[in-house]
Write a protein that binds this DNA or RNA. Structure first.
Lengths: 383, 383
DNA sequence: AACCGTTGTTAAAACAGTTTACCATTCTTG
DNA sequence: CAAGAATGGTAAACTGTTTTAACAACGGTT
């Protein structure tokens, strides 16, 4: 396919310099479209053209755009009128190239098959997107596939000036490439997790508090044999839950058992299988704490289809409070994580970090328990 | 906070011109960090620096980067070696500014509260993201809030050179601002829908085929009184389903009834309410076709909690085949939409459209039925 | 009147690439 | 062997903005 001819400049460079106030409002360029017919295209409007038409310098227009206090009110109005009249929109590639920032932040998701279709990520993303929009930033999404990281594309994001900063969702200590960011001082915030060494900036939910709230509930309902379906032991926040679970049992005078702990892989199927294993190991178990809602749902599905009533025989508590699960049957008691707010905060802090307003980011947001139908009083205590 | 001092150039412009082959591999600039201590920062590497070090012109380096056939094998290797040695990465703001494309495409989502946490959008997005990555394109996400559209930010996306093209997910004929794209010939593809006037490029699933497959199944199972929970009558593809549903009934010698049609708003709750209305209007109804899985799930929830067994009393068929619903109880018979593939195709076609390789895009992908537990034979026909 | 300090504006130099027109070579070919 | 074509490379123009240093005009002090 032949390249269409470029616009030919209607006047020479030097002529330009001698005719700063030239009337040029009717300038048009003739261009040929694919059909070979002529077509009138309005002169593409850039800052130079606006300056010419307004009878000021390019610098003045730029300063009007950026609301510089050095421009007088009258000039500001005059130039703004011309900008509106000509429908001028500054080219942001040029702006970013010449300026310090791209005004774009990336969101990096883990290489899971359904990362985009995930309620957990989606909720955080909503918060990020809303705040990014308010702050005048655009959002780029990337999935950190192994190939992507191996080729160093995560660093290219900064080095080729795609973005000013990155928000990382769903990663844990196994993803060691994240340290690359810290090593180069590239703005990056780990969302809903932290690294053990605390070298990476982070923002996460208070998983210890959440686990405490869930355990308090189950213990108050009289449960003594409480199983736990955990996942991702390489994730510090996931470990927080297990540790708090164990500590809660101890504090209640119960000896925790290794038998009560099963990995559910954060998946529906894993949760179902974990419930099976738990009850086969110890039929006394009357309550199960799950590391996320998906596993809790899987567990409930296994239980209800294998002769255990929920919550009559076994109580189940989840973690996340993802949407549209309030309608599960029975509906799920779960620890609500403020994921939307977490996204908002992450985005806000990232921009502050980019602007150099903060040196280090480490924030924790409180959780709360949502009581629904999947928990009930311990059998023996019921009247 | 004080602005850190910029790098001061270690040599004047003219000196530069007279020392094209200068040894400069050890050049460093001294910069002061916030603590006021000195810090060595490697000279930032741009195309000019690479050209100097390799002893060629800037144009040559550029042509090596773009694999121009006008560069000899020996020069290519020499320059590539220097590029690798210096760790040079072209600034893509400069590339896009001077070149024709940004290599970025936007995905626009409707202003729904949980647009990012949606399994339907997520699946399409996965396909888009995968293909965009392969084509060397980045992905920008936007939510088309009313404010966003009102301020013309959807057009800014092109006019300020954020992106080369846009993929629109989840919109329908009510979203008239989409015509703005067509009017300006900005590359945009409507994903999984079309506009009645066919002026907009589109890619969608074959909803007629899907509805046909669902209806064939229900009719073959002996159902004669079949309700339908539709939604979004302003969506042409949604109308396809209703029309095919009606036509199927007629073709089977059944007189369709207005009573059998209820709007379920594409939501879980809407589906539940629709099921209630349907059965109150006509208790004879033994099967329900739902416009998406969410509504089907809502319907099943209503039915099972109000004394109707699924599928023994009422069969339910969904539409979409979203993930993690195979595990619902009973698991859902549904029309599988190739959403991932649709995303892939949309992205591919958009890039072709951007490159001018195609003038108009209009593609339809076939569906298939996934038989699971929510459908069964009509009561009276069972042995 | 000379000097100083504002205030408002501008020319020119970045930013970092791509593209084009032109210029040497070297290779064919009549 | 001279003319013409092909090859490989380069200088300079171009993309569209921000930013900085310089400066003109003007008011207010000594």
């Amino acid at each position: 396919m032949p390249t269409p001819p470029l616009n030919s400049s209607p006047e020479s460079k030097s002529a330009d310099a001698f005719a700063p106030s030239r009337e040029a409002s009717k300038e048009i360029t003739v261009r040929f479209n694919n059909a070979g017919t002529e077509e009138k295209v309005p002169e593409k409007v850039n800052i130079r053209e606006v300056a010419r038409q307004a009878g000021v310098s390019v610098a003045t227009v730029s300063m009007v755009l950026n609301a510089s206090p050095r421009i007088s009110r009258s000039t500001h109005i005059k130039v703004q009128k011309m900008i509106d009249k000509m429908g001028y929109r500054p080219n942001r590639l040029a702006q970013s190239l010449s300026g310090r920032y791209t005004q774009v932040v990336a969101v990096m998701l883990p290489p899971l098959r359904h990362a985009f279709a995930d309620a957990y990520f989606g909720e955080i993303l909503s918060g990020i997107a809303d705040r990014a929009g308010k702050l005048g930033h655009k959002l780029l999404i990337e999935q950190a596939k192994p190939q992507f990281v191996k080729e160093g594309k995560h660093l290219e994001l900064y080095e080729r000036r795609f973005v000013d900063g990155v928000l990382c969702l769903g990663f844990n200590e196994k993803h060691s490439f994240l340290s690359d960011f810290a090593a180069r001082r590239y703005p990056m915030i780990l969302v809903d997790n932290r690294f053990g060494d605390n070298l990476l900036d982070y923002v996460h939910c208070d998983y210890r508090l959440g686990a405490q709230q869930a355990m308090n509930c189950l213990l108050q309902l009289g449960h003594r044999s409480i199983g736990m379906v955990y996942a991702a032991p390489e994730s510090p926040t996931a470990r927080d839950v297990v540790e708090t679970y164990t500590a809660s049992l101890v504090a209640a005078g119960i000896t925790p058992s290794e038998q009560w702990l099963v990995d559910g892989c954060f998946t529906d199927e894993g949760g179902a299988e974990a419930a099976r294993v738990l009850l086969s190991r110890d039929p006394q178990i009357s309550a199960i704490l799950c590391g996320n809602d998906k596993m809790a749902l899987g567990a409930i599905r296994y239980l209800t289809t294998h002769g255990h009533r929920v919550p009559d025989d076994v109580s189940v508590v989840g973690f996340d409070d993802i949407q549209h699960l309030a309608y599960a049957n029975p509906s799920l008691t779960t620890v609500h994580l403020p994921l939307y707010e977490l996204g908002v905060l992450a985005c806000e802090k990232l921009v502050e970090r980019i602007r150099g307003k903060v040196e280090h980011v480490a924030e924790v947001l409180p959780t709360h328990l949502v009581l629904r139908e999947s928990t009930g009083m311990m059998r023996s205590l019921r009247s």
